[in-house]
Design a protein around this nucleic acid. Structure first.
Length: 280
DNA sequence: GAGACGTGGGA
DNA sequence: TTCCCAAGTCT
């Protein structure tokens, strides 16, 4: 926590004045997405939609455009849906407990706890990929492949939390920051690490972990084509012809398949028999 | 529980 | 250039 006080980054969602809504928005944007990329969109987003009710009042099309190139645009849609639920069922107030937060679209085990801890000082273990990696190395002495945190990870973190709730939240943020800035996945800076003298992984000679299962290759995938289609929809003021969409892949069949999946996800809608647009 | 889901930067 | 990774969630 001394490390965090000295080296923690000044981020807008860490300001004492940051609202629970701002913290929730930041946590969703940060899912699988680097801080530097989130910073560019976060300010614009909060200026336009300072609370859930203002977001719920706008269209998914606006939301998807502001989301821009953050990636995983379904997150934008779910954030809009979450704002709608908060407005309709919680009088526009962000829920302050894990159980209720988990019911919101796009809010899973990590994000629910992050919001509960960072926005409301609930004493709950917050375990993201950074915390998971730090615990794995420092406590268990192994470098595990990157996977979503498990209940066992949360149970382990729970045993380490300070008793005072606000301090526990700060502790979680501190471990996350250590993982992000020092105990990184590829090139950990053990020389700077405040835990170096008690790290079981370091004491064991920093053994390499088991390789992660192969990730999907990117070139020519449906994900790439979906991304192209969404980029075309965002760039256009109005509807675009379906034939244009189909040609965004060298394989017309793939183009149509991807379009169908975007329609199924609600990221695009048909406006007539031959045109596609962002959802209203 | 494996697999799908965007994007771009650093090694 | 290629590979891997970045505050996960949902099906």
């Amino acid at each position: 926590m001394d490390f965090f006080a000295e080296h923690g980054r000044d981020l807008p969602w860490r300001e004492p004045t940051a609202s629970p809504w701002a913290i929730l928005v930041s946590e969703v944007m940060l899912q699988q997405t680097p801080v530097n990329r989130v910073l560019r969109v976060f300010g614009q987003w909060m200026a336009r939609w300072p609370d859930p009710t203002s977001l719920a009042a706008d269209t998914p099309a606006d939301v998807i455009r502001i989301w821009g190139r953050l990636g995983y645009p379904r997150r934008a849609l779910r954030l809009h849906a979450a704002a709608t639920v908060i407005t309709a069922r919680h009088t526009g107030v962000v829920p302050d407990n894990v159980e209720t937060l988990l019911l919101l679209p796009g809010i899973g085990e990590y994000t629910a706890r992050a919001v509960a801890a960072f926005a409301f000082h609930r004493r709950t273990p917050v375990v993201d990929t950074n915390v998971r990696r730090v615990l794995s190395r420092v406590v268990r002495g192994v470098d595990e492949p990157r996977e979503p945190a498990t209940a066992a990870d949360r149970a382990e973190m729970a045993t380490l939390l300070p008793l005072e709730p606000a301090k526990a939240a700060r502790f979680s943020a501190a471990v996350m920051e250590l993982g992000a800035l020092v105990c990184s996945a590829r090139s950990p800076a053990c020389g700077w690490c405040p835990l170096a003298d008690r790290c079981r992984w370091r004491m064991a000679g920093s053994p390499p972990g088991q390789a992660r299962r192969a990730v999907q290759t990117w070139h020519g995938t449906d994900r790439q084509v979906r991304g192209r289609i969404m980029a075309a929809l965002r760039a256009s003021d109005g509807p675009i012809p379906e034939v244009t969409v189909a040609q965004l892949s060298a394989d017309t069949e793939q183009g149509l398949r991807c379009l169908a999946s975007l329609l199924a996800d609600g990221l695009a809608v048909r406006v007539d028999s031959v045109h596609i647009a962002l959802p209203d």
